[in-house]
Design a protein around this nucleic acid. Structure first.
Lengths: 304, 304
DNA sequence: GCCACGGATGAAACTTACTTTCACCAGGCG
DNA sequence: CGCCTGGTGAAAGTAAGTTTCATCCGTGGC
């Protein structure tokens, strides 16, 4: 029985379409008509029902099924989803993104969005890659065992600092953030051995933050710096230096990508600390979530 | 009220999966079970028959159909094909990283970092993909031409709100943020036609923010909602709805990835507004940068 | 506490899509 | 000329998908 010439369906390296066109000549006339339709527009074929496709190929459903078997599929539905997958794969690159650079003057919003997202995502990824787990570990240890944690930051980095403080607080660590330098200095003066001070500054040159960190260090607290520049002044007053990897672009300023990168680092530290005592952290989180529950309204019903 | 906010319903080029996870909370329990299966493994779902999937989700075929309709498909076959296409597009199974999931108890810091960074980066990318430039454009227009802009947000979203306020302020737009609900309500009551109110809430269920936005809308201001869930209550009081696409994981809470996604959206709006009047924005930015210069120390200073 | 209401749900009826069977036809060959 | 053979579609059969509808359950009004 020379029947059922099933061609290796399981593995068609060049793709299903290539595979089909390869054995096109070996198909019967009616099947060839089907095959040609499929090859011409896989995506469209995937959308059609078997009856539809049969009609378009001027043949019967039975032939379409036979075609499916001929190219190694189980049946029509399988062919359909394979075609859909195939079609999706060959549409790929819409890459109009402006890499790393500034936004061009004439850019439309879609371009702006793509550019920002790309740079933001890359900053996050690259930051993670260059983060030293060993140093993170030490910082996490310090924070997890700290009597008190002060987080400092000014301007855009202030948001990150504030966020970190709030996170630590939520899992039951005693943490503070001060928007005001004077208060921060006062607080730093009250730190001591066993406490931790975290200073956040993208440029690493914010004198306020450096000053406060210096004070904290003088009092015996462990100091941590989070900056984009490993050689910047802030690193000189820090016991531990964590760096972000944002290639900040010129004018758009606001340290946009860097802020995301900072937040990522903060999140890592946070999760690390929380993991130190899972059950306690979880309980604290649940308690805090519960606390705001009454400020939530029921989930949205679909609009009629 | 609820005059159908502009949720790009048909427009979800950012991926079906993202779209579905955004809709998840607005689905009924049985539909959610289906949705979770689909999101967890789109490729596998595409291979299943409707009966199969229904059984796996411990529900009936009818519910699966309802689910298809809920996410905007015609029926099951269409969903299947879209899923297959989707699954094909996202290529690699990310090796050790824990996708979208929680951090495993025994994870070491390197793993934690990789996981967080991956999810964060993805949230940013997927958010950008599903953002509707047309709606952004309208929002940017509104903000660029607004007499006054109020930004509302509570908890974690409060940071984002505050950040947005600060950004707008830096380029010379009159913007406010209020950490306190009462003050916010008061301010909202003073808004009027030509003003813009932006409400940020990851879940879209924060009653405080909804309330304030509602007030603003009643006074004639254009209202913008930024949330992860396109069917959540906040969208009912918003003229424009912008969505993030963070698949927030369970316990680690704090809406970590979502916050980055929110910031990305905020940045896009910011740059969009700044681009409306480049020279003025640039001048404002330079002025603000100049203002803090004296708080910066020279690079590589030796310890003082 | 009762009842009306509306949404959620699955069983079953129903429709459509897919698959198999089978009879037919055309051509090739003894 | 008759018999086989592969290709084909009509029609029967089966499975998949869709609709309908009765039931259930929670909610809010009285």
């Amino acid at each position: 029985m020379a029947k059922s010439p099933k061609i290796s369906a399981s593995h068609e390296p060049g793709g299903l379409i290539v595979h089909i066109s390869g054995l096109l000549p070996s198909l019967s006339p009616a099947e060839q008509r089907v095959a040609r339709l499929v090859v011409a527009d896989p995506a469209a074929a995937a959308r059609r029902t078997i009856t539809d496709l049969a009609t378009a190929a001027e043949t019967s459903e039975a032939t379409v099924i036979r075609f499916c078997r001929s190219v190694g599929m189980d049946g029509y539905p399988q062919l359909r989803i394979r075609l859909a997958a195939e079609a999706a794969r060959r549409v790929e690159p819409p890459d109009a993104r402006v890499v790393g650079g500034d936004i061009p003057p004439g850019a439309d919003l879609a371009q702006i969005i793509a550019t920002i997202a790309f740079n933001d995502a890359r900053a996050v990824e690259e930051t993670a890659e260059q983060l030293d787990p060993a140093i993170c570990e030490q910082v996490v240890d310090a924070i997890a065992g700290a009597g008190r944690i002060d987080v400092y930051g000014a301007g855009a980095s202030g948001f990150v600092a504030s966020d970190f403080q709030q996170k630590l607080h939520r899992i039951g660590r005693t943490a503070f953030y001060f928007p005001d330098v004077h208060t921060a200095l006062t607080s730093a003066a009250l730190l001591g051995r066993g406490d931790v001070a975290v200073g956040i500054s993208h440029t690493g040159t914010t004198s306020d933050v450096i000053e406060v960190l210096e004070q904290a260090r003088a009092r015996g607290a462990a100091t941590v710096a989070l900056t984009n520049f490993p050689r910047s002044p802030i690193t000189e007053v820090a016991d531990f230096v964590l760096t972000t990897a944002a290639r900040e672009t010129t004018y758009r300023s606001g340290a946009m990508a860097s802020r995301l990168a900072q937040l990522t680092v903060v999140d890592c530290l946070f999760v690390g600390v929380a993991a130190r005592n899972r059950s306690r952290a979880r309980k604290a989180l649940e308690a805090t979530a519960e606390a705001v529950r009454s400020h939530r309204v029921g989930p949205g019903r679909r609009r009629a």
